[in-house]
């Protein structure tokens, strides 16, 4: 059951990465007033960023919830062996992942507020989206590294 939850957590995280990266790139392109081109980057970022808001929030909350369910198993079955291997940096990496994940969750109300249809594009919107994207990427990579060292 825990393996199925871990896989679902990974799949949701992958989908979230796609959505938040698309949105962040599109918001960045709009802010930089970069013209429409036919390059890969232009087409990748050529989406309507507001359309991603609800999907990002729902996927973040589900992914976070699944992570919370897995966490006790990590604490008992993965962290203790990692500590025995004296890989303190891996424990620290996961600690950072959990704290950043919680901070990202608390950023969702502000993120939703900035992306509400009544608000105009602004610096805060772009910065919040880029920050949420950075948290998602960091948590994804850190989770993979620690899981490769000692998986559940």
């Amino acid at each position: 059951m825990i393996v199925a939850t871990l896989i679902a957590h990974g799949l949701i995280a992958t989908a979230l990465l796609g959505a938040i990266t698309h949105q962040a790139m599109a918001a960045l392109r709009l802010t930089l007033r970069d013209g429409h081109g036919d390059s890969f980057v232009a087409r990748y970022s050529g989406v309507r960023p507001p359309a991603f808001r609800n999907a990002v929030i729902v996927m973040y909350v589900i992914g976070f919830g699944l992570g919370c369910l897995i966490y006790p198993d990590y604490r008992l079955d993965a962290r203790i062996p990692i500590e025995e291997m004296q890989l303190g940096w891996a424990v620290g990496l996961f600690e950072l992942k959990e704290h950043f994940g919680g901070i990202g969750l608390a950023m969702l109300p502000l993120y939703a507020h900035y992306w509400s249809p009544t608000r105009a594009p602004e610096t805060g919107r772009l910065a919040t989206t880029l920050l949420l994207a950075c948290i998602t990427w960091f948590d994804f990579v850190a989770g993979h590294i620690v899981n490769n060292i000692r998986g559940l």
Binding site: G92, I103, E122, G124
Partner: peptide, 24 residues
């Protein structure tokens, strides 16, 4: 200040990194 509220989570992240520095 409304455009700079994102700096509070950034400072929390930096503080977390500082508090966990003993791991690194």
């Amino acid at each position: 200040l409304t455009q700079w509220l994102w700096l509070t989570p950034v400072s929390t992240m930096l503080a977390s990194l500082y508090l966990l520095r003993h791991f690194f």
